[in-house]
Amino acid sequence: MSSPMLSQILTASRLTDGRVVYFTETGQWSEQILEALFVAGPEAETTLLAQGRQGVAFRQVVDPYLIEVVRAGKDDPLPVRLRERIRAFGPTVYPPPRALIAKDARHVPV
């Protein structure tokens, strides 16, 4: 059996709301890890990090860095480190009481 293929993807926190985002094949930042662009090899990683710096310069993201992922199933990326799996898929202990995006609750009067 062959070992799973290791790749790198670029992640960061979105500047405006801090949400976890990934750099995609189309050059955008997405909340979906499934849309992340995979690379392998030092040259491609350097290029990807440069995209991260550009995201910082364009005030899209904060603290970009590469993470290691295995490509499982239909090439779905699974972060190697638990910390990154938690960032990608949310807290492990219980679902937030409502899968509510804050903006959906703007009708709540203060």
């Binding site: 405006t16 709301d17 937030p96 009481p97 804050a102 203060v110």
Partner: peptide, 29 residues
């Protein structure tokens, strides 16, 4: 509670220093 509803995900966390933390707040908010 209202802030938790409107700006967070309906949850707050009381800390060991008697404070309260909201874990899902947007910087712009």
């Amino acid at each position: 509670a209202t802030i938790a509803h409107r700006y967070d995900r309906g949850l707050g966390h009381f800390t060991t220093r008697q404070n309260l933390q909201f874990n899902w707040i947007g910087l712009e908010d």
